[in-house]
Simulated scan of single mutants.
Amino acid sequence: MCFTMKSNKASLYRGINLKVGEFLVNRLIPASTLGSVGAIVFLDHIYPVDLRHDSSSFPTGNYAHPHRGIVTFSYVLSGSLSHYDSRGNHNIIGAGGLQWMKAGNGIIHDEKPFIMENDEPIFHSLQFWVNLPGEAKKEEPEYMALQAVDVPEAQLPDHGGTIRILLGEFGLWASPIPTFNHEFIYHLSLNPHSSFSFSPRKDDEVAVFVTASEVDVNGIVLGNSKMLLMEEGIKEIVFQNDKINAADILIFGGKPYNEPIVAEGPFVMSSYADIATAYRDFFAGAYGSINLSWVR
């Protein structure tokens, strides 16, 4: 599937509801008219769900699945999330933490949302996929996790809130997570009755996603799990929060991805022949398997 996203005006995306495992999600990317924002080819918003009944970090294995050709990027807004994969990586992150997995030439992973003893009972998260350049799709898988305290965070002027640099660079701050196509993901927490002006880099493709509370984005009211794809060449994005609660805003994108994109199931490759190879290698057992015994 190939898409063109260039536009002379901002475009609103509401997403579609899907059931992923046991969870209801809103899938914003891909959409019928949008395949990517920069190298970001996938965005699922996992709606808030009460998991106070579930304190186990161990997956059942029923939802373990493969990936190839992409990076998976999970960001937890509340609750906790465990990770297991076929390369022996395992970690647990809490609210404000993130997990980055470069699938490269093939890996199987499983993620388990749950609630720790001191967590608030609601699990709420986002998952992005970042498309790798063709050569990086051949590389060995890698995994990295950051807890909330490890994520760079800057204070906004005039007590306006904070901006967390989940991926990429922002001014003097940079996430330790690797990037491949100048991709970036920022979490803006905008205080009540506050504003913030953001100037994208020249030629970047940029989208804005608001999880719940509504904010004004260049004169457009955005919120409640909706995404705004900004117009090509935009020089300034002004966020205005006139509510009495802080607003959570995700700003993401990067340089245009100029290689062929062919996506099918959990694989994103450069051709249908590459997709066929990805499936063939998976069914041949080339991605390994998850062994939970060593962490129990």
Rank of each mutant, 00 (worst) to 15 (best):
G233M: 13
N245Y: 10
E236K: 15
I275R: 00
D281P: 00
M269Q: 10
D248L: 05
I234V: 14
F267P: 01
F282R: 02
D248S: 14
M269D: 06
V238I: 15
I249G: 00
E264Q: 11
P256F: 01
M269C: 11
A284R: 03
N241V: 06
G253L: 06
E264C: 09
G265Q: 05
M269W: 07
A276N: 12
G285A: 07
N258E: 13
F252Y: 14
E232W: 05
Y257A: 00
N245L: 12
Y257Q: 03
P260E: 09
V238C: 10
F267S: 02
V268G: 02
R280I: 07
A276V: 11
P260L: 15
D274F: 03
P256A: 04
A284S: 10
S271T: 09
I237N: 07
I249L: 08
K243D: 11
I244F: 13
Q240L: 13
T277A: 13
F252M: 04
T277E: 15
Y257S: 00
L250R: 00
D248F: 13
I249E: 02
I237V: 15
A278Q: 07
I251N: 02
G233R: 05
D248Q: 11
E232S: 08
F282G: 01
F267K: 01
A273Q: 12
K255V: 15
K255W: 13
Y279Q: 04
F239P: 00
A247H: 01
A278E: 05
G254D: 00
K243F: 08
I234R: 01
S271G: 06
D242S: 10
G285Y: 06
L250A: 11
F267D: 00
E236R: 15
G254S: 04
K235S: 14
P266M: 12
E259K: 06
D274V: 01
E264G: 08
V238P: 04
P260I: 13
G285H: 11
E264P: 01
I234E: 11
G265A: 12
Q240M: 13
F252S: 03
I251W: 04
G254R: 01
A247D: 01
E232V: 02
F283M: 06
A263S: 13
F267C: 02
D242M: 12
A284H: 12
D281H: 08
V262T: 14
P266S: 07
A273M: 13
D248R: 07
Q240P: 03
E259A: 09
S270P: 03
G265W: 11
E232L: 03
D242K: 09
Y272A: 04
F283C: 01
F252T: 00
I244W: 08
A278Y: 05
K243S: 14
L250D: 02
T277F: 07
M269P: 02
P256I: 08
A276G: 06
D281C: 12
A278H: 05
G253A: 07
D274E: 13
E259P: 10
A263Y: 09
G233W: 05
F267T: 06
K243L: 11
I234A: 03
E264S: 10
V268F: 09
S271D: 06
S270L: 12
I261Y: 00
D248I: 04
I261V: 13
P260Q: 10
D274K: 04
F239E: 00
D248T: 04
D281M: 09
R280F: 09
D242N: 14
Y272W: 10
F252H: 01
